[in-house]
């Protein structure tokens, strides 16, 4: 420390540091802080872009509770989240464990499973829309060839969300798989050697060593995945758009795929109910904030081995 001072190294930045950080602070204020604060403000107003916002207190929130589509959108969003997250986590974990063993094909497999991750949700939604097509789609043809009944997929309220879940799991599998692969490579090999010497089989090695040591990874994946799932929008917009030009029909048969974000989007940009949409945004913000806080609290417990 003394030496560093003598060499003139104790000054660390000062003015330059602020110069480097300043653009991001400006960006933060304009595009993050201001929008959050004004979302809270707009949620207390009636605003249609034409007239100035009119303060109406908590009316938007009162209407929100009575709006039949809003509770529907919450259950749909939760259905989607609780459907994609466990299925997605389990499949990507198993894939990672399988691929981790085969040293030879690892690049190929990783590339293959990662392809949907780099594709856009718009394009994969379009591809799957065609796969799910009830009359001519590949899936129903395959089902018929296997002797299974043809399904209505996105056209039926019973299976529409399920169809979106399957597509979304497929799309994100590679991302979580790669995160798990990184986690697996962080497990010290001597633990596996020890368990082999002790005569543990593959199953018990997996449950006693791999799974517990991947707990931090799993935790991370689950939280990030869950928060992402709460924001689902594109799949519904592309796949169950219904009648183009009529937002009322967006959200699949019997509103079975209406999510919170779809509802916010429609209220804001189709009906120009900015205040009402802001109230919904704020509810979603509160939920995501809560999940993040719980996450931060839990993540601060370091799981060591």
């Amino acid at each position: 420390m003394q030496l560093r001072k003598q060499l003139g190294l104790s000054n660390r930045g000062g003015f330059t540091a602020y110069l480097f950080v300043l653009p991001s602070i400006i960006f933060l204020v304009i595009f993050v802080v201001t929008p959050i604060v004004s979302t809270a403000y707009f949620s207390l107003t009636k605003y249609d872009l034409l007239r100035a916002p009119e303060f109406i207190g908590l009316d938007n929130y009162r209407v929100l509770i009575g709006d039949y589509r809003f509770p529907r959108s919450i259950t749909n969003t939760l259905y989607f989240a609780l459907g994609t997250v466990p299925a997605g986590v389990i499949t990507s974990l198993l894939l990672a464990v399988l691929i981790n063993r085969s040293v030879r094909g690892i690049y190929f497999y990783r590339a293959m499973f990662y392809l949907p991750v780099v594709s856009s949700f718009v394009s994969v939604s379009l591809i799957w829309l065609w796969l799910y097509e009830p009359q001519f789609g590949l899936l129903n043809d395959a089902f018929e060839a296997l002797g299974l009944p043809r399904m209505k997929w996105l056209r039926s309220p019973d299976t529409s969300m399920l169809s979106i879940i399957i597509l979304s799991v497929w799309k994100n599998m590679g991302l979580n798989m790669v995160i798990y692969l990184a986690g697996l490579q962080g497990i010290p090999p001597h633990l596996y050697e020890a368990s082999e010497i002790d005569g543990a089989g593959r199953t018990s090695t997996f449950f006693r060593i791999t799974l517990p040591l991947l707990a931090p990874t799993t935790f991370f994946v689950v939280i990030v995945y869950f928060i992402g799932a709460l924001q689902m929008f594109v799949q519904v917009f592309i796949m169950t758009a219904g009648d183009p030009g009529n937002p009322q029909t967006r959200g699949g048969p019997l509103d079975s795929t209406v999510t919170v974000v779809v509802l916010i989007f429609d209220n804001a940009f189709a009906y120009l109910k900015m205040g009402y949409a802001a109230a919904m945004s704020f509810v979603l913000f509160a939920v995501i904030g809560l999940v993040t806080l719980v996450n931060a609290r839990l993540l601060s417990y370091d799981i060591g081995y």
Partner: peptide
């Protein structure tokens, strides 16, 4: 503390703030 705020900002998705952002 600024870095901590940035970490928080990372967690606030566009979906909950796009109305004012649009107005800006």
């Amino acid at each position: 503390s600024l870095f901590f705020i940035y970490l928080g900002a990372m967690m606030v998705p566009l979906q909950v703030r796009f109305i004012p952002t649009f107005l800006i």
